[in-house]
Amino acid sequence: MIAYILRRILYAIPILIGVNVLTFVLFFVVNSPDDMARMHLGMKRVTPEAIQGWKAERGYDKPLLLNDSREGLEALTDTIFFQKSVKLFQFDFGISDSDRDIGYDISQRMWPSLAIAVPVLLVGLLVNITYALLIAFFRATYIDIWSVVLCVVMMSISGLFYIIGGQYLVSKLLHLVPISGYDTGVSAIKFLVLPVIIGVIGGIGSGTRWYRTLFLEEINRDYVRTARAKGLSEAVVLFRHVLKNAMIPILTGVVVVLPLLFMGSLITESFFGIPGLGSYTIDAINRQDFAIVRAMVFLGSVLYILGLLLTDISYTLVDPRVRLS
């Protein structure tokens, strides 16, 4: 088990290097260091000397990938790419191009992201599973048919509409919660209610349908028929047998997204003015802050790989038949 995990972690390294190279190339095809300097120094009265100075200060005055002026190994190491990458692997994200400590910013902005993502996940899970169980219970009746239709209808509405409509209705017309913003501590609740509800509603369509399929698959198995034949009531069958056995795919599905919750939601966060990691990334793209973009991509990849690993491990935990080799 431990050997397996170790091997997986080792396997992650080339992937992270690949991610790093790709981001780097993509970003510098688009942005020259000069562009970045100009962006950060402002629009008015920028002299070439100031640009040179800015680049030198942040180490962007070196060649991108290969330094011709150096000998041997230094030709590779004395480059923007190498210098900036090494630290990343030590999880030292450094200072953003606008002079902020990225690690600190990430650690601060992580919490608002989680404050939305975790309730959305949990409430969503609860609502979707309940609803799906209900549908499974009433399978092949009018409730089933219309619920599935409702799910498809809900899936077909753009997420943007939920946000725009929800904000307009709940905040503007009904005055129930603030339109946007965020606060720390308990007072954050009133800012989080709407985004969480919208997040849950937006996910009901696809989520419920997915769980419904899971449950129906289980319901048609032999052991369920046996249980029913024993005279157990339908509710007991559903809760004790079907739900329990469907838990495996549900759990593994949840585990894989767990680490990614940290990354936040791009659209929701910027619509509701929540200072999470999603809006952090968007801002960084718009401001061309390479340091942040790289840090976030790196973090995203690490979390993704972590999610895959966790899924594999959780398989063994819930299902002893699966052996990790």
Binding site: I15, G18, L22, L26, F27, V29, V30, I285, M296, G300
Partner: peptide
């Protein structure tokens, strides 16, 4: 597998943003 895991682990929005900017250039 390596190729698609690498591609997969990059947040998609970023990849798209970079590509669109590249095209503009």
């Amino acid at each position: 597998q390596y190729t698609y895991t690498t591609l997969n682990s990059i947040p998609g929005v970023l990849l798209i943003a970079a590509a669109i900017l590249m095209l503009q250039i």
